[in-house]
């Protein structure tokens, strides 16, 4: 048993150095070399300033921008404390919150009729979901177009450029990246 103790201690130390320091250190060096943009967070600029990460949601409330899904991370879109709501299907809090989001959505998009897309009034798992569904973007299109004083068709083509189909044709869902789309909107159709 004494022998087992000695080896256990030594192997714990060896593993700490090998898998806890050398491995992540080497991976960092390698990734910084090969994929520097992704490894550093896919940060994205607008007008020469870093405005966020292309794959992390941020808050949008103005009518001329597309809005991301509601967020339960911190006080909303807190990318230093990702989180879902963790409210279960029979939670009064959940139902009340969705009710509020549905009302807000109709107020912001008065022209919209029919059922709301399922992603538009639910919080995501991370609270930082960078995407909305194409239907959710479409539902906001009239508002954004009106706020920017351009026709919906022009914005729709931009929307398509920032959409993605399921990966390899079958994995996951179609989606629209809210932040990159909004940056492109500011470039192409700046608000007067």
């Amino acid at each position: 048993m004494i022998k087992e103790l000695g080896t256990g201690l030594r192997l714990t130390i060896i593993m700490t150095v090998l898998t806890g320091l050398i491995y992540p250190g080497a991976m960092t060096a390698l990734c910084q070399l090969i994929f520097p943009s992704q490894a550093n967070g896919s940060m994205i600029t607008a007008n020469g300033k870093v405005v966020g990460s292309a794959i992390i949601a941020q808050s949008f409330t103005r009518p001329e921008y597309f809005h991301p899904r509601p967020s339960a991370a911190g006080n909303g879109y807190d990318a230093g404390a990702s989180s879902g709501s963790n409210l279960g299907p029979t939670s009064q809090k959940l139902i009340d919150r969705v009710k509020g989001s549905v009302a807000d959505f109709h107020k912001e998009n008065p022209g919209f009729t029919g059922n709301l897309p399922a992603d538009s009034v639910t919080t995501s798992s991370s609270g930082l979901d960078p995407h909305i569904s194409p239907a959710s973007a479409e539902a906001q299109l009239a508002r954004v177009a009106q706020a920017r004083g351009v026709g919906p068709e022009q914005i729709r083509s931009l929307m398509a450029a920032h959409s993605q189909d399921p990966d390899l044709g079958f994995l996951g869902e179609p989606r629209v990246n809210v932040l990159t789309l909004n940056i492109a909107l500011d470039e192409r159709f700046p608000k007067k």
Binding site: L87, T90, A118, T122, I132, S133, G172, P174
Partner: peptide, 30 residues
């Protein structure tokens, strides 16, 4: 979740939005 659907939220998959129970799920995964 039928209770959420009754608030006017789409419950079925439509090809352009995921439907179903999207609380606590990411759009890219569905």
């Amino acid at each position: 979740n039928p209770t959420i659907a009754s608030l006017g939220v789409e419950r079925s998959y439509t090809g352009t939005q995921p439907g179903g129970n999207m609380e606590g799920k990411e759009v890219r995964f569905g």
